[in-house]
């Protein structure tokens, strides 16, 4: 059997061994879908192209998705991918956040989860986010967003994604978003769950805070002790989607 394994290993050619004739690719922990919207996409229908050249994955029609239909109307599905190699092919052929028009958003979500609160995977969750003044961060935002995507697809935001039943659903992360606005950028990490603040949720709270700390220090590159709030800038802060809906004062977690 050892001989078999060796023979098999010898037959493996990665993209590093042979960029034009590799025979294996690196699967991602989960397949992902990139979505996009900007003022220019509003009311615009997808172009008429042969179905074979441009297949659309139908969006699952769960009750949550139906409720989000107004919100989703102008958000265009760009593409899905499930390997490291395909991610970079996509990355190298689209523009980075610093070049996006104003009021545009990239949404990178796990396949089958739409970038809306109403989705079953999001409705009990929340988001870590940071707002960065545009003038000071034009030169940083592209790298920050790339690192955010890499932590998402590499599944390193949450140190224990396979606790529990070992399925992808055990991972806390559902998607990541970058938004461009006239005065600032915002990067967000959406989570499947949000701690309630009760004692029973202490373990979940700790896990959520771990995601926030990883985001702040490893992904965004700030010291853990750094205070970031200022004009047009926020701390790295967590808010449940339920509290976001309420507007007004809500309990935020800050790392």
């Amino acid at each position: 059997q050892e001989v078999d394994m060796e023979a098999q290993a010898d037959g493996i050619r990665t993209v590093f061994n042979d960029p034009s004739n590799f025979n294996v690719k690196h699967p991602l922990f989960s397949p992902w879908t990139l979505w996009f919207d900007s003022p220019a996409t509003k009311g615009r229908n997808m172009p008429q192209t042969p179905v074979s050249a441009f297949p659309q994955t139908p969006i699952p029609q769960t009750p949550g998705v139906q409720a989000a239909q107004g919100w989703m109307e102008d958000i265009k599905r760009v593409i899905s991918f499930d390997s490291v190699e395909e991610f970079w092919g996509l990355y190298n052929n689209i523009i980075p956040p610093s070049q996006l028009p104003q009021k545009a958003n990239y949404y990178l979500f796990k396949e089958g989860i739409i970038p809306a609160w109403e989705d079953e995977a999001n409705k009990h969750g929340g988001k870590w986010s940071i707002q960065l003044p545009k003038d000071k961060n034009r030169g940083n935002v592209d790298k920050m967003w790339m690192y955010t995507m890499l932590a998402a697809i590499g599944e390193t935001f949450d140190p224990s994604p396979t606790l529990g039943d070992g399925s992808a659903a055990a991972s806390l992360i559902t998607g990541v978003i970058v938004s461009t606005r006239p005065q600032f950028y915002r990067i967000s990490i959406w989570t499947r769950l949000a701690p309630s603040g009760s004692d029973e949720d202490a373990a979940l709270r700790e896990r959520i805070e771990g995601v926030g700390r990883h985001f702040k220090t490893s992904v965004l590159g700030y010291p853990e002790s750094a205070r970031l709030a200022g004009p047009l800038a926020t701390e790295v802060e967590f808010l449940s989607h339920k509290d976001s809906e309420k507007k007004g004062k809500a309990k935020k977690i800050i790392v």
């Binding site: 615009r44 760009v78 899905s80 991610f87 689209i94 545009a104």
Partner: peptide, 15 residues
């Protein structure tokens, strides 16, 4: 890995 994905829609069409 720089190859443009075969399934990428025309980007101009979605803004």
């Amino acid at each position: 890995c720089k190859e443009k994905p075969a399934m990428l829609p025309p980007l101009e069409a979605i803004g």
